[in-house]
Design a protein around this nucleic acid. Structure first.
Lengths: 355, 355
DNA sequence: CTGAAAGCGCTTACAG
DNA sequence: CTGAAAGCGCTTACAG
């Protein structure tokens, strides 16, 4: 039972024939602001102020109300508060997935930062399937969030337009684009592909291959990779595309298929650290020494990958910085300062096993 | 601009001296159910039914309303809906952290399952610090969630009592207890400690050590580990406790300190796979072969750990199953069936490098 | 510094 | 199958 007492009845209220019927709507459901107000001997609006603008309340009143709140265990109803004030204090975070994910660190620090500022995070997992995106957006917008964090740029025009039209601050992250909906904190996946290609070229790779998930961002990395290699006269790159989410197992299975296509392959760019680790394991089993016979480059921000497997090169991205920066962008805009802006956080090709 | 048209005015409404002042509350803020109703030529309640009980609406009416909804781009306001119906359709997930975490997979599938059932997940990150727990709970309860997922059993009595008193279904996960608040899906950390001790004993370990975070669950594993070893006459176990969240770096730093305490140590139980990987790296650097000279056992559900490092033993827990089972428990209770119950999902000591 | 009235956008509980 | 009225628990916009 959430509460022990029904609303206090003011004496014996006999039904008045002329009065409209007072509908009962499910009985007593919990403490309301009026319960606190009555106990503290103030008006409901004063209780409201104790929570929302305590500096406008006389110290004695403040103390008295707070004691009643404490004693009763009153917790304000933000559904009501949000409806009334048009301030939901909710921020939606739309993420493909948080399991084993590059994004979990971003969401972690984003959530911490937002909650310190008095907002809560509604988690919306979009998966890698665009088909249900409209439904997801409906669900998200029905909560009337005051801001939205997107991992990745919004794909469809319809989605972009709807988000733009809500009129709340939007941050896109983990990607780069010429026409962000509003704000953006990320980096260019295409440029990562270019950087990895250049890294391979510097190491005199002759026959590079690719293992990648076929989600949009991974495909952008692939494009950069292929185009830079093409400039260097290398084309006809062997590749295996897998359905996201990528995993160690998928990487493991990919290498044999890659080698079938190109037996003399000498380097692989993997779309994620998970794929890279799987590929590495497969290489070990096939007796290919890494990196001398086969160089492997992953992508991610997991300390695991390079800590555990010094043979691996990886492209590292600062997920924490993305989360914090994205939160600050939103908070700036919510507090009225803050402009639309684009932040490129860059990336880094890490070669622990480069010796 | 969220919307283009102000609410339709019914002709020229001249201010009536006798009528009460109609306060403007910030102007037009978006489409309301009445806008849709007006366009479709029905009452607002009918539009409401189209969303909430379409089977009670005549097919033609349904179609007409839906077309107007589509055309206008109307999205219902669930703050209002939730307030009115006392059904927030929100489930709170209280988690210490999702970054690099064992919990992220649980939250992932939990969220997927709940959203398929029409609920959304409010993410509340509690950290490993109990001090702000009351504040966090206030924030959570202010959203009037219909259910709560907790990772770990609630610690303080005050918290347990408050959660129990809300009267909504609660699932505790990732742990075991004799007196759950309501429902529980988990396993015994103490028994894991016992199992790892037995595993070590079977391998004739003489001088085991421990590297653990000092959070409540890790300490329960430690207790099981120490008590089982004590039964076998092994005590005075060298140990290093680190502050959560654990990491590869902390594991790396821990081994030298452990060896300082006990130079002849021959096995280490690490509180997490991250610590285990760090310990493994340190062992490599110190020239200790694993597992022959030093056996290492971790804990987690990350396929990384054992896929990457076959030298490692690890205790595996099915985070996915926990998430799905927890979601089902809540959904059963929300639909009126479902009893309070405890599910032990167990665990498994995985020895890939056991040959 | 405090309060009475009205309204936020829905749904309940009836009634037809 | 559909609707008019009242209410959900807050906050806004005034007024004092």
């Amino acid at each position: 039972m959430p509460n022990k007492e029904p609303p206090a009845a003011a004496g014996a209220e006999l039904p008045d024939a002329a009065a409209p019927v007072r509908r009962m709507r499910g009985g007593p459901k919990g403490l309301r602001i009026t319960d606190v107000a009555a106990q503290a001997g103030v008006a409901p609006i004063t209780v409201s102020r104790v929570f929302n603008s305590p500096e406008t309340v006389a110290p004695e009143t403040l103390e008295r109300v707070r004691q009643v709140v404490q004693k009763l265990g009153y917790v304000p109803n933000r559904l009501a508060g949000g409806l009334s004030s048009s301030r939901s204090r909710l921020i939606a975070a739309i993420v493909p997935t948080i399991a084993h994910s590059l994004f979990s660190e971003t969401i972690q620090v984003f959530s911490e930062t937002m909650s310190r500022a008095g907002y809560q995070v509604l988690l919306a997992l979009s998966g890698y399937d665009d088909s249900s995106e409209e439904v997801l957006l409906d669900a998200v917008l029905s909560r009337r969030p005051e801001g939205v964090l997107l991992t990745g740029v919004a794909h469809t025009d319809s989605l972009r337009e709807r988000l733009a039209n809500v009129g709340i601050p939007i941050v896109e992250t983990w990607d780069m684009t010429d026409r962000p909906i509003d704000m953006l904190v990320g980096f260019s996946h295409y440029q990562i592909g270019v950087a990895v290609a250049e890294h391979f070229l510097q190491r005199n790779v002759r026959k590079p291959g690719l293992v990648s998930a076929n989600d949009e961002r991974a495909l952008a990395r692939r494009r950069g990779f292929r185009e830079r290699l093409a400039q260097a006269g290398i084309s006809g790159i062997a590749e295996v595309l897998v359905a996201p989410p990528s995993s160690v197992a998928l990487g493991k299975a990919a290498l044999p298929r890659l080698i079938e296509q190109a037996p003399d392959i000498d380097a692989v760019f993997c779309g994620s650290d998970l794929l890279a680790i799987g590929t590495l394991n497969a290489a070990r089993q096939m007796g290919l020494s890494v990196p001398s016979r086969l160089a492997i480059c992953g992508f991610g921000d997991l300390e695991f990958a390079t800590e555990t497997t010094p043979q691996l090169t990886s492209v590292h991205v600062d997920g924490t910085r993305i989360g914090v920066t994205a939160a600050r962008c939103l908070l700036d805009r919510l507090s009225g300062s803050g402009q639309s802006k684009v932040t490129d956080v860059g990336f880094e090709v890490v070669r622990r096993g480069s010796s």
